[in-house]
Amino acid sequence: MSAHSHRRAPQTHANDSVHQGSSGFLRRDSMRPAYRTGSSSEALSAARRTQLNRGLGLVAGVFLTYALASCFLPGLLPMEVYGGLRVGELFALAQVLVIAAGVLTHDRHARRHIEPLAARVATREPAFHAEESHRSGTAAASSAPTHGDPDADEFNAFDSSRAFGGRRTGRAVRATT
């Protein structure tokens, strides 16, 4: 490493040396503060928590607005707004639009934040996962599934070599032995 980066290293204090390689990605100013840690897995769980909270908030908000209006403000909904349309129908249409927006936002957030983070977390331990696939491959060849195996069996969707390759068929083969 050059002397330049040695001088810079003490200033970035939230950093341990293991993650210096990944910190550049996770320190972009455009990302939210929760993601700008040095650890991909913490960033990942923060991202997922954000997504979950936002999603639940959206569902609860939409539902409660309509439910409470309908149950406790009975005069609001049958008010005529335009021709034959009433507030109630407009609420329903607005709800459909909000649901559509929610779905699109959820997917976009997932594509933009969660999947890169998950991919980084997965590729951090390629040796371990490679050993897993080797082990499950040999386990498939053997006749009886071992009980120590299954907890290590978790396959990783973001590693395409295993998504299309040995692990899936390994598991399917094992299911038929």
Partner: peptide
Amino acid sequence: AAPSRPQQPGAADDLLSGSGTH
């Protein structure tokens, strides 16, 4: 089932949780 966990630090719970460090 916890005792078996420390031996597989990389075991993922679901496809997105990545490593099990947390």
